[in-house]
Design a protein around this nucleic acid. Structure first.
Lengths: 196, 196, 196, 196
DNA sequence: AATGAATGAGCCTTCATTCAT
DNA sequence: CATGAATGAAGGCTCATTCAT
């Protein structure tokens, strides 16, 4: 019951945040969309930042689901699996730029009240999980463990860079598209994993 | 005289911003650090956002200077020049993470009052300028023009990604260092520019 | 409950405004007089201007009540009714000069936020309503419709003029009293409505 | 020399005030238009309100000139002179609504600093002067002195009322034009002065 | 006479949060 | 659990005015 209502608040928060951005979203706005008064929000979350942390948690679940779904639809052990896992990760954030904002906001500026070390750890873990399939797929192609770790980290960074540039419009400065650049990077990665 | 005082305000703003972050910095805070009352700030800048724009402009000048300096100290036409130009760019933001924040803040959220189209254009240009030496160095190695553009964009994205991950502590998640990963990417880039 | 408190804020605002004038009244002042902190005012009114609009609305209700009361106490259909309706209108503003200020302030300078077109329309209507009994009384004496409209408009203007002159002390310049001048105008009007 | 410069400041102030209104005009604005820095204004005027008082004085001179001009162009001693004097007075403010604002602002809200008793007296006198020709013309038609005073005061009030209603757009509420209503009032006045 | 710099008081408004009921 | 009311701190900004130079 309580969980349902909490989820309802979260839905309202997500909608508000997607529509208005992080700065444009106030507790009042969330409450209003949820059909509550501001005070009620604090029955479900300790603070506004806790709402965002929960939102991020939920966002990471969707991310993992999307990655897992893509993996299931591709044969294990081949380069296709690398493409599927990596592509699903990138696509998730390309299609949902607000989820990227959310991640940076929570991971960057939060007070201890909003992001306890345990919560931080668990969120980190889910993010890490979403990259694991890519890492595993690289390993399955014979890439040494140390290198898969390096590659997946670099891959993550590359995605983040492309997404941020795309999201802030900086990439237009170069007349380039993030999708094409992503594919380019992915092919180089696949090349390194399975030469020839 | 006025310029000196304006610079003094800018110094105060930079210090405040480096210490407290962009959201934590108020006009009151800047004024206090500069030894002024809040109203005085508006003798030098039209708005708070104009202060940030000026800060960014100045940051981009330092960036360009650093890149130019590194280029001067390396022979033109060889791979060393690529390493110098690209490395200087990355190092600037690695050593001054707040300058990266500044860039994203200004480019993302500013009102027209703070960031006129002309100013936006000129700031963009200076950012672009800072990447030009890298692009030129790639071209000097015989890389086709279309590819140099693609590569420099991807390079920029990779830097941003590594820096953001590093800045938000996410890179620790992978037990990796941004410096090492940068060098790795740079070597791959050099490889592509000058195979063998 | 909320309505009571809203009325309480309105009382404070009216008192402040009567004492300090519209320009001298700040939200802080209103809040202080109401026993609140400034932010609380915004629970009851969207803006400072909305407070004034509400004050004017309430002023116009009092005006209409006063006019209606005077009409009830006078026989319909005769010149007495003209004197009653017109006199009540003038007396209201003579006795409450600040209410006149309020009207002009709101009707003149308000932002859309404080005075939406609908609100403007409804306030206008109530002002118009307060003059209707005078117009009707003129018609009851046999004055043609077109003339009643002209006369009531001129009457309104004359009242406003006398009140403004009286309020700003300019009338003293002529050693005249607004009351006597009003009665004079009224008698001329009655003459025109019911010659002999 | 000083007087010339003072006049120059006054010109700037008038222009600013006509364009931006009283609330929209700042000392900065006036100074800028006069080619000065704000502080310089205080070499010529004790305060912003003193500027307005001076502006009003000058406005009253123009008013008197306009009235005098109209009188000169009409035969003395007849009803035409009444129409000319009264009409010129009304026209002045109908054509220059800002001058009316000025008058009310100065006469209503000024601090002692801006409006000393002597200045007040002299401004009052000039206003009174502008109505004298109308009063004299009425007397020339044989109207008793006591009545001419009453009539000219009522006339002044009627003008002010029509102008204020016109200026604030309230007159539209009645689908009436201030010009027509003025003429109507004037004819009644003439009637009273020279029956038949 | 004029500047340039700065003040200081004030403005309206926003908002996360608290807490008695 | 939820409300309704209110807080308090802060926010960016404006502007008449002062005064040393």
């Amino acid at each position: 019951m309580t969980d349902q209502r909490r989820a309802h608040v979260l839905d309202a928060a997500r909608a508000a945040f997607f529509e208005l951005g992080l700065d444009g979203t106030s507790v009042r706005e969330i409450a209003q969309r949820a059909g509550y008064t501001p005070g009620a929000i604090y029955s479900y979350f300790a603070s506004k930042e806790a709402v965002y942390a929960a939102l991020l948690g939920e966002s990471l679940e969707r991310l993992n689901a999307q990655v897992a779904g893509a993996c299931e639809r591709s044969p294990a052990g081949g380069v296709e699996r690398v493409r599927a896992a990596a592509g699903a990760f990138f696509d998730f954030y390309r299609e949902n730029p607000r989820d990227l904002d959310l991640g940076f906001y929570v991971f960057q500026g939060l007070q201890p009240r909003g992001l306890t070390p345990e919560l931080n750890k668990s969120l980190n873990k889910r993010l890490r999980d979403a990259l694991r399939p890519t890492q595993d797929a690289l390993a399955a192609l014979g890439m040494p463990a140390a290198q898969t770790l390096r590659e997946v980290t670099a891959f993550f960074a590359h995605c983040v860079g492309l997404l941020v540039l795309s999201h802030t419009g900086r990439i237009r400065m170069f007349n380039q598209g993030s999708q094409a650049l992503f594919e380019c990077y992915l092919e180089q990665l696949v090349q390194r994993a399975a030469p020839r």
